[in-house]
């Protein structure tokens, strides 16, 4: 009996791996999850969740234009991602409109431009796959580009890990001791745009937003140490990707949606049972809590 259930569980894991598209989907989603999870802890602490939302939507027209001109998607996306942030900053400075309003206004405008362009430029860009991704139908060139950009972002974030933490925590001190705050600001934005690009190609815009926000929030509830927060954030993002893809394979569900739902459930679990910050403070049940 035990052997039987073991075999079932075993095939639950290994059966999907016999399909090439599933192996690719698992690899790609984990990579994107790792990149976004890493970034997510910075965005959560910097209060940039809405900025993540904005940038991931704003890259859309860039992708379409790049496609029309035969340029790499990432270039177009990057220009529009950083451009949207510059525009947000400019409008905020020059008008009396509040920042969150400006962010919403700019990114919906960019996004709408993207949609209009898609409908006008005859292309084989599938709107649905940009929005919701098609993790199960990623091309080989996309795989290469995703791996390259993901590695680039992870390396950049790793090198400037501590500087970015200081930048999020106390930019004034960073500036006072001669650290280039301007550079760090744009480094974070660049990584955000690049993450949006890799996410867009493999898992879709809507999913990228979730991946940039939820893992960081989950980790924030679970730890008081920055390094642990990054690790938990990355792990929870990867685990939700794996769970989401397996579940969508076996139960024939929408893949992107399943991944986000897995993340949301992990967040809810942390929200309810996190040792220190959860509603029920799980630790209390075992060791008491001062």
């Amino acid at each position: 009996m035990e052997l039987c259930s073991f075999l079932t569980f075993d095939s639950f894991i290994t059966d999907p791996l016999t399909h090439d598209f599933m192996r690719k989907a698992l690899l790609m989603s984990s990579l994107v999850a790792a990149v976004c999870g890493f970034l997510s802890s910075y965005l959560t602490l910097k209060g940039w969740a809405l900025m993540g939302d904005a940038v991931s939507h704003s890259v859309m027209p860039g992708v379409v234009v790049a496609y029309a001109l035969g340029l790499p998607f990432s270039l177009g996306a990057f220009i529009f991602g950083v451009g949207s942030v510059a525009l947000i900053g400019f409008i905020k400075q020059k008008s009396r409109v509040k920042e969150d309003t400006v962010i919403g206004l700019v990114f919906t405008g960019f996004f709408a431009l993207g949609i209009v362009l898609v409908s006008k430029i005859k292309s084989n860009i599938d709107l649905h796959s940009i929005l919701f991704g098609s993790p199960l139908g990623i091309s080989l060139s996309d795989v290469k580009q995703t791996i390259f950009i993901s590695l680039l972002v992870v390396i950049l974030l790793s090198i400037f890990r501590k500087d970015l933490m200081l930048y999020c925590f106390d930019p004034r001190h960073a500036k006072t001791v001669g650290i280039n705050v301007f550079f760090l600001h744009y480094l974070l934005l660049t990584c955000l745009s690049l993450a949006a690009v890799v996410g867009l190609q493999s898992v879709g815009i809507i999913l990228v937003v979730a991946m940039l926000i939820t893992p960081g929030a989950t980790a924030y509830l679970l730890t008081d140490k920055f390094d642990n927060m990054t690790v938990i954030s990355v792990l929870s993002a990867i685990i939700s990707s794996l769970i989401g893809i397996y579940v969508s394979f076996w139960f024939d569900l929408e893949t992107g949606g399943s991944i986000v739902l897995a993340q949301t459930f992990i967040f809810l679990f942390a929200f309810l049972f996190a040792p220190r910050y959860g509603i029920f403070k799980l630790k209390k049940l075992f060791v008491g809590y001062k």
Binding site: L45, C168, D170, Y220, K225, N228
Partner: peptide
């Protein structure tokens, strides 16, 4: 008041 006291840092 100028710092985020909830920042996960020791």
């Amino acid at each position: 008041e100028g710092i985020d006291s909830q920042f996960p840092i020791s």
